[in-house]
Computed example of a mutant assay.
Amino acid sequence: MEYGEHLYNRLGYVGKHEYILQKLRELGRLLICSRKTTPLKTINDHIRPANFMHVVQAVKHVAGYDRETQTYKCLSLALKIGHSLSKIAMLVESQANVQNDYSAAKDVRTFRRVYDAKWNELISAASLRTLQESKWNAPQLLPFTKDVQTLHSYLDVQQKHIQSKLSTETSPETWTQLAKVTLTQVILFNRRRAGEVSKMPLSAYLSQNPSDPQEDVNAALSDLEKKLSAF
Rank of each mutant, 00 (worst) to 15 (best):
Q132A: 11
L75T: 13
R109W: 14
I123R: 00
S134D: 12
A125I: 05
K118A: 13
F52R: 05
Y115K: 08
K106E: 15
D116P: 01
P49C: 09
I47V: 08
A63E: 02
S86W: 10
D101Y: 00
N120P: 13
S94R: 11
L85W: 04
L91F: 12
T130Q: 02
L85T: 02
S127V: 04
D101T: 04
L131M: 08
P49G: 05
D107E: 12
N120D: 15
N137K: 06
V98H: 09
Y115F: 15
N100I: 01
V62N: 03
M53T: 08
L91N: 11
E133L: 15
S94L: 03
A125E: 08
A96R: 03
V56I: 12
A89M: 03
E93V: 06
K135N: 11
A89E: 00
D107R: 12
A96D: 00
A117Y: 12
A104S: 13
C74D: 12
V59D: 03
N44D: 14
R67P: 07
L131S: 09
A138M: 07
A138Q: 10
N97W: 04
S84Y: 09
A117S: 15
E68D: 09
A104Q: 15
S86T: 14
W119K: 03
Y102P: 00
K87P: 06
N137F: 06
H46N: 11
A96Q: 01
E121T: 15
L79Y: 03
L142S: 09
A63P: 04
R67T: 14
V92D: 07
P143M: 10
A105Y: 06
L91C: 07
V92Y: 04
R113S: 08
Y102K: 01
D101C: 06
I47C: 01
V62Q: 00
F111G: 04
K60R: 08
Y102W: 10
D45K: 00
K87I: 14
Q99F: 05
G82R: 04
A138P: 09
W119L: 02
N100P: 13
S103P: 01
V92F: 02
P143T: 14
N100T: 05
H61F: 13
V62L: 02
V92G: 10
A50S: 06
L85V: 00
H46I: 10
W136R: 15
C74T: 15
P143W: 02
W119Y: 06
Q99S: 10
V62F: 01
A105L: 07
L77Q: 07
T130M: 03
P49V: 15
L141M: 11
A117K: 09
T110D: 08
Y72D: 01
A63Q: 01
C74N: 13
K106V: 11
Q140L: 05
P143V: 06
A104C: 14
V108I: 10
V55W: 05
Y72F: 11
A63I: 02
L79D: 03
A105F: 05
I123Y: 01
S127R: 04
A63N: 05
S86P: 15
I81M: 00
D101F: 00
D116Y: 11
G64F: 00
P139S: 09
H83G: 14
S103W: 10
V55R: 00
I88H: 03
